[in-house]
Simulated scan of single mutants.
Amino acid sequence: MPIRPLLTGLVSMVLLSAALAAPPPSRSEYKIVTASKSGTYIQIGRDLAKWVAEPAGIDLEVLESKGSAENVHRMRFEPGVKLALVQSDVYQAFLDEAKAGSADAGNIIRPLRLILPLYDEEIYFVARADSPLNYIHEIRNKKLGVGPLGSGTALSARTLYRLMFDEPISTDNAQYLSNEEALAKLTVDKSIDVAIIVAGQPAKLFTDMKPEARNFIKILKLDDKAPETAKVTKTYFPATIRAASYANWLAADVPTLTIKAYLVTYDYGLQSTVGNLARFAESLCTNFDKLQANGHPKWKQVRLELPPLSQGWRYYPPMEKRLRACIAGRTLSNTGAFGRGASQAPSQPQRPCTEQELVLGICNR
């Protein structure tokens, strides 16, 4: 056999073997911070990992957290965290603290950017079944479980209370507890009167409950005629916890309040990160129907649009550009688009920390 064809064949075999043995193209590894394992945020994060990040060539690790306030910190400073789920009132609270002169709050919140408004999260005011309380505005001076320090629930609970009653929750009446801890203290040792829980329905914490739950707990109702209600509805919005969401134990719909959830990132400049997040935005748009069809029921309430933002809120331009172009394309189709800044050491406060700063995690006693 001639030498040249033999050598050509051998070279081809070597190249083929090398190609087969070569590792697949590397995928970017990013993280998203959500909330507790029994909440809705973590399920939303898993949906984004499966239906959006994976098609975009991103391995997205879904991390538990205490909630929105902690997520803001971790989005800002934790390596690998490129995405976060954050309540709108928490985001605004950081902006307000920065505007009031808090260097720590400004350092944390100013580089963060919004990707997309998501859905409304219901606020559950849970009391014992035999409690004399029936309405949300009756919680004044009661012992309250308000969520862990660093959680969006804690911020929402404190903000709602202050708006309704023109005073903060007293230190003696606020207990910073996880959802599970709060329900235990409410029903077992009865050391609190109401557990305040923020979660998009249907929330796993409540869907896992058995019919017997109605013998132990109930959800307080929003009274739209109460003067306290009028004080909160500029920041929070009336909504309904549907009996169909918790058919095991909830006998009737319950009027309540909601707050908006947002998908958040950082103002990245590193070209590889910009490119990855732009692909994520494109995938979010093109796979949006799959999210609504296969993801958590809350996706059905999400609208693929970028509404005008409040002062101090900004979208992330590379993702905004890609989303707007893709959204415009979908509309036409239906009717016939340097890495994270170095973290700065937070300054030491020159005065005692307020409870608001403790909840937001910008207190350094």
Results as ranks from 00 to 15, higher is better:
M209F: 11
L291V: 09
P24T: 10
L304F: 06
N173C: 07
Y246W: 05
H296N: 09
V302E: 02
W51A: 09
L149T: 10
F280V: 05
Q344K: 15
Q271Y: 00
A251S: 15
V126M: 02
A69C: 14
F338H: 12
N287L: 00
C285M: 01
N364H: 14
G269D: 09
L10S: 09
G329N: 13
L284F: 07
K290C: 00
D47F: 11
A203D: 01
I32K: 02
L114R: 12
P132I: 04
G339M: 06
V198W: 03
R365I: 08
Y262A: 00
V81W: 09
R324S: 13
S36G: 15
S36P: 10
L306R: 04
F165V: 10
T273L: 10
R322T: 14
Y41S: 11
L304A: 08
L85T: 06
L83A: 03
K218T: 03
E64W: 01
R324T: 12
L112I: 07
N364E: 06
L250Y: 10
D224I: 12
E29Q: 15
L309D: 08
V254P: 00
P297N: 02
N71H: 08
Q356I: 08
L60G: 03
A293E: 13
S17T: 15
A56Y: 02
F165K: 01
F280M: 13
E122A: 13
N179A: 15
E97T: 07
G152E: 11
K225C: 04
W249K: 10
P111K: 06
M75D: 04
P25N: 05
R279D: 13
Q87N: 14
V274H: 01
L309F: 04
S68W: 02
